[in-house]
Computed example of a mutant assay.
Amino acid sequence: MINLELPDYLDNMKTQMKGFAEGLLRPIARKYDEAEHTYPVELDVLKGMPVMSRPKKKAGEEKPKKDAERKNGSNMSQAVTVESICWGDVGLMLSIPGAGLGNAAIVAVATDEQMERFGSKWAAMAITEPGSGSDAGSIQTTAVLDGDEWVLNGEKIFVTCADRCDAVVVWANVDPSAGKAGIKSFIVEKGTPGFTLEKLEHKLGIRASDTGTFFLKDCRIPKDNILGSAEVKKSTEGFKGVMKTFDNTRPMVASMSNGVAGASLEFLKQKMEEAGIALDYNENTNNVSAMQKEYYMMEANLEAMRLLTYKASWMADEKIFNNVEASMSKAKAGRAGTLITQKVCELLGSMGFTREHLAEKWMRDSKILDIFEGTGQIQHLIVARNILKLSRNELK
């Protein structure tokens, strides 16, 4: 028998995190939506708390566990936690100290020495450039080895937590003739000469989270700041290595969408019940009102979003290659979450577009979740290439 329910400890975690989100994040969501670029000082209570860490190997860990001994790991826990926190506010969730995408990359491929140096720092990730968005392989930022230092030159845009982070994982090209194999990632600390935060963006949604542009001009960093091995020829943690980070983080973005869509749908249900519109799951869907039918369809999509996310996260915990499943969860949740929040605003009428309620904010916030960490279109390409067994050149 397949059990699709969360185990008790994860269900309890979900309840606790939702309580945290309801008590701390939901009350200040509108405040920091309107006060864009202002750091949410209320989040200072979370400083110093371990957000991301690398699990230590234990003796005999390589032995497969029996089914009765299996327990969901960090990825499933994060999926549940992220969804619950984003029910409170996704922009504030992205502003939690130490929870940057760069931290995920460091945990995934950093050496033990790099973990010691940078593991406790708040790290952002700088991939996107003016001429390189979804195609990370076309990165133009360069890194040239000069003695014991790397010299970086280029521009990075749409960097999340750009102003608040302590360090940035910068993707750069060490050998343009090598294609994607020439793409490596480097840890650049804030305050390094030649590394300048040029501007912060004014955005449609997730306004509580700061997003900025960096310029790198003859920026010099130590040779061993290349993420992974300091020897380029020995470094297998380059483009392929850090791209594997997304197999873990794309389900987390899907979880963000699950949280926002869940909050939106929950608010709609509340207002429907206040208006005397009862939801009866025993009723034939052909005999219910148009609004009820829309609600049932959105609820079904939300459940599909969650199940795809849980599967991808479970596979990551089980060390099963989940590239396709990660993209499936991101594609489904990103697109369906956007449609759910839009439809909720439509069904709410005037309540869906006034700032008196958060519904219009959830609609704005949800849009980015279909875009960053690989657009929905890119996720569909990844899935299609794997299913059809076609290469990147065969299916563009």
Rank of each mutant, 00 (worst) to 15 (best):
R207K: 15
T192R: 02
S134E: 13
P193S: 07
C219G: 06
Q114S: 10
L204F: 12
A162E: 07
A172G: 10
D218N: 15
F215D: 07
F158K: 10
A136V: 11
G119V: 06
K217L: 04
S120H: 14
E116D: 11
Q114G: 08
W150T: 01
F186Y: 11
G212I: 07
V109Y: 03
A104Y: 01
A104G: 03
F186A: 09
F118Y: 15
W122M: 02
T128W: 13
A172Q: 07
S138I: 00
L216M: 15
H202T: 12
V168G: 05
A124R: 02
A181Q: 14
V168N: 02
I157Q: 13
M125T: 08
A124T: 08
L145T: 05
G133R: 12
G191V: 09
W171R: 00
A123W: 01
V170C: 03
S138G: 15
C219K: 05
Q114A: 08
K184L: 12
K156L: 00
A104P: 00
E201K: 09
R207T: 11
V107P: 03
E189Y: 05
I139D: 00
A105N: 12
L204G: 05
E201S: 10
S132R: 02
V159I: 15
K121N: 05
L216P: 15
A123D: 00
V109F: 02
E116N: 11
M125V: 13
C219W: 04
K217C: 01
G154C: 08
H202N: 10
A104W: 03
K199N: 14
G212K: 06
K199S: 15
D146G: 02
V151K: 10
D218H: 11
G147S: 01
R220E: 12
I206D: 11
F195K: 00
T211V: 15
T192H: 09
N225R: 10
A167Y: 03
K156Q: 03
V107N: 10
G191F: 09
E113R: 13
T141E: 04
A123T: 14
P130F: 02
A143R: 03
G212S: 08
P130S: 01
